[in-house]
Amino acid sequence: MLIRCTILASLLMGSIAVRSSEVLDRMVATVNGHVILQSDWDEELRFECFMSRHPLVDLSADERKAALNRLIDQEILREQMRLMDSSPASAEQIQKQMEALKTDQRQHAGEAWETVLSQYHLTDKIIENHVAAELEQFQLMDTRFRPSIQVSAAEVEKYYRERLVPKLSASDVISLTEATPKIREILMQEKINQLLNSWLETLRAQAQVRTTITSSSSDAERSQGESQ
C-alpha cells in the first residue's frame, strides 16, 4: 500500500510539474501551425537587450510586442528559406561574427564576455543560434532582392553631399570617388530593407498567424492573418 501511495504521489507531482511547465512555457503564437513559446519570446528579448546594451528591467509593452513580432517575421522567413532550400550559415561565418561581437563587447562594455552573458541569462550557444539565424536571413534577402536593385550615380552623389559630408570633420573628409563603394552598399541595403518590409507585409497577409494574450485568468486570441 505504501508503494502504491508513493507511486501515486509521484504521478501527481509529475502531473503538477508538467502543468507548471506548461504555464511557464506556454504558447504565445503560432505561424502556419508552428508554435512560438514564451521561452522563445523571453530569449528574443534577452538577446535584443544584450545586442543593444539595454537593461532587462523596465521593458515596455511596446518593446515586448516588437520582439514577438520579430519572432513571427523570423518564422515566416524561415518558411521561405525552406521553400528555397537555402544553405545554412557555415561554421566559419558564425565564428567570424562571434569574434566580431566579442571584440565589440570588449571595447564598449568593459566587462568579460562571460560576465555580460550571465547578466542577460544567455550562453555562447544561444548567441551562436541567433547569429546563424540572422546570417541565413541576410543571405535570403540578398539572394532575393540584390539582383533586381540598381543604385545610380546620382543617388550616390546625393548621399555623399547630403548625408555623409555634413557628418565629417575637416580632417576626415574623403572624396566622392573614395566613398562611392561604401555609399553604394549602404544604399543597396536600404533598398533591400524597403523591399523586405513590403514582402513581409504580403507574406503576413497570406499566413495564418495567431497570438495568445493572457488577461487575468483567461487567454484571449487575436487572429492576425488569413490562410489562402
Rank of each mutant, 00 (worst) to 15 (best):
H130D: 11
S20E: 06
T115Q: 12
H121E: 07
Q95R: 10
S39F: 09
A29R: 09
V18M: 11
Q97E: 15
K96P: 00
Y160H: 07
M188W: 12
I183E: 09
Q105N: 13
P181T: 08
I174H: 04
A109E: 06
Y159D: 08
E111M: 11
L117R: 04
E226T: 14
A66E: 07
R210G: 01
I186R: 13
L117D: 08
D124V: 08
Q137C: 03
Q150C: 01
A112H: 10
L2I: 15
V18N: 06
H130R: 15
A133H: 05
V165P: 00
Q150D: 13
C5Q: 15
L117E: 03
E43T: 14
P55Q: 07
I149P: 01
K96G: 10
P166V: 04
L11S: 02
R46T: 08
L2K: 15
Q97G: 01
T214Y: 04
E114S: 14
L135S: 06
Q208H: 12
L168K: 03
I7W: 09
R163M: 13
Q137M: 10
R26D: 09
Q105T: 14
L56A: 02
I3P: 00
K125T: 15
Q224K: 07
M13N: 03
A170W: 00
M188F: 12
V23Y: 11
A61V: 03
L12N: 01
L11K: 01
D219N: 13
W199N: 08
S198P: 00
I213S: 10
K96W: 03
Y120Q: 05
V156Y: 00
S15V: 08
E178Q: 12
R53T: 03
Q107K: 14
L187W: 05
M1A: 12
I94W: 09
D42S: 11
D73K: 11
E190W: 01
I174L: 09
P181V: 09
A220M: 13
Q107S: 14
T123P: 02
I76E: 00
P166Q: 04
W199D: 06
S90Q: 11
E43P: 00
K102A: 10
T143G: 04
A205W: 00
T211L: 02
E221R: 06
R70Q: 13
I149F: 03
D62K: 11
S223V: 14
A153H: 08
V18G: 05
S86K: 11
A61E: 08
D58W: 01
N69A: 07
L45Y: 05
V209E: 02
A153L: 04
A133K: 09
I192N: 06
L8G: 02
L2M: 14
E79V: 00
E44V: 00
G14V: 05
